[in-house]
Amino acid sequence: MSKKMHIKLKVNGKDEEFLAEPRELLIYTLRERLNITGPHIGCETSHCGACTVTINGKSVKSCTMFAAQADGAEVTTIEGIGGPDDLHPLQTAFKEHHGLQCGYCTPGMITRATKLLEENPNPTEEEIRFGMAGNICRCTGYQNIIKSIQAAAAEMNAAKEAAE
């Protein structure tokens, strides 16, 4: 065993500090140490995207990053995007447009989609397919995920316009 490291993270706005072995992967830190179980473990080989979180503004598969690498970073998980009482427009849209069935991929999907819409607030279907290509869904056939993201984009753009 190697010596433990002192690691600080800001997760969903909250400061966290702990000692961990360098080989601890961020997904385990989130799920098992911090009890943040929204991000899921799917393939564990950086293909499926179920573990996607936002780290310093980038979508990252947290199975392929050590907690030590993220030391000092800001991490956002699905829990930080919206909860049962304050759903994010993407969460509402996934619900309304059947953007999920089993729901296993959904936290990663929505977390990735928040970043996609930040970079491209009005994506075409093709841009959504390309921008979401790092997230695999085995239920929906993707069509309803695309509809959900388009609906959320329209909703968010309308809200932004109304506010201006």
Binding site: M1, R23, E44, F66, D71
Partner: peptide
């Protein structure tokens, strides 16, 4: 899948 233990450096 967790890698074997290692020492981590961030120079």
């Amino acid at each position: 899948m967790i890698p074997a233990a290692f020492e981590y450096y961030r120079p």
